[in-house]
């Protein structure tokens, strides 16, 4: 029933907007917004409640007291600044590396007629589907062999790699849309290939690099299993792992408030990115997926 009503709206977007379908649409929109936001907002609210309100039964929805104690606890009693730094360092470095390696490859795959192009593309497409659990055992052995355990590189290298397929696909679809004439004009003008790439193509590529970079950053920031496996030293842990282990760290009482505060901290950079770059994220995701 609801689907049918919904379709009516799809069908005649403007002509027959009766009050009834208007109202219905508003209800649906509201439901979508609540569905997507509620868990995040609840966590935010929890992080600002005092402990008594957190463990109150029935639940307190509009607390009378608010506190930042859970946040200060993260920074005073636990090395959360450290975790944030680790996450940021690893994510940013791997994002930059990924763009530096992936964009040239994408350019070559989009523009230059290289041998084996189809095979490479098929390979890139397939590995985007690999769950990381399939890789962690082999990577663990690489990490051990190279003595990279408890080293930022143990995360930076795999993060760069797991974001490469998406980067190559998104950037390739961007390069394909770029008018070829510009590069031809540059050749006629006398630019050599390095100059074309750096002086002509790169300046036009900045928006696409930003789009791809945001996606890569999100994936790197959110990664869990490698961070859990390759990093055991407390001072090197990333936010998701450190937060997940908050609950199991104290035997007697689970620090719900601290966990909520840590969740909010760990998600806020991403919330910010989504708010600022919603359109780019959508473009990048669809470009990356639909090309497949």
């Amino acid at each position: 029933m609801s689907l049918i009503q919904n379709l009516k709206l799809v069908h005649l977007p403007k002509s027959k907007t009766s009050n009834y379908s208007h109202l219905l649409l508003s209800v649906f929109v509201l439901l979508v917004a609540i569905f997507c936001l509620a868990p995040v907002l609840w966590q935010l609210l929890t992080s600002l409640k005092v402990n008594a309100d957190i463990s109150a039964v029935p639940n307190v929805y509009i607390p009378k007291r608010y506190t930042l104690a859970h946040y200060t606890e993260l920074f005073t009693r636990r090395p959360f600044l450290n975790y944030i730094f680790n996450s940021a360092l690893v994510s940013i470095t791997s994002t930059v590396l990924c763009l530096a390696l992936g964009a040239p490859a994408a350019y070559a795959l989009a523009r230059l007629r290289i041998w084996g192009e189809q095979v490479i593309l098929a390979g890139v497409l397939i590995v985007t589907l690999f769950p990381y659990i399939l890789l962690f055992l082999g990577l663990l052995q690489v990490v051990q062999a190279l003595h990279l355990g408890n080293n930022y590189l143990a995360l930076i290298i795999p993060y760069t790699a797991i974001n490469l397929p998406l980067t190559i696909l998104v950037m390739r679809s961007f390069f394909q849309q770029l008018p070829r004439d510009l590069e031809d004009a540059a050749k006629v003008d006398g630019y050599n290939i390095q100059q074309i790439l750096l002086q002509i193509v790169l300046p036009m590529t900045v928006p696409a690099l930003v789009t791809t970079g945001i996606l890569a950053f999100i994936f790197a920031w959110n990664e869990f299993i490698f961070a859990l496996t390759f990093i055991t030293r407390e001072s090197l842990k990333t936010i998701p792992v450190a937060t997940a282990q908050l609950g199991s760290s104290s035997v007697f009482e689970i620090p719900y408030g601290a966990i909520a505060a840590a969740t909010v901290l760990g998600t806020s950079p991403l919330v910010l990115l989504v708010l600022l770059f919603q359109r780019r994220i959508v473009q990048g995701l669809t470009a990356g997926a639909v090309k497949g």
């Binding site: 004439d181 031809d184 004009a185 540059a186 300046p203």
Partner: peptide, 12 residues
Amino acid sequence: AMVFQSYALYPH
């Protein structure tokens, strides 16, 4: 020297 159909001016 070549003039292109799309003009191919460097946008930046």
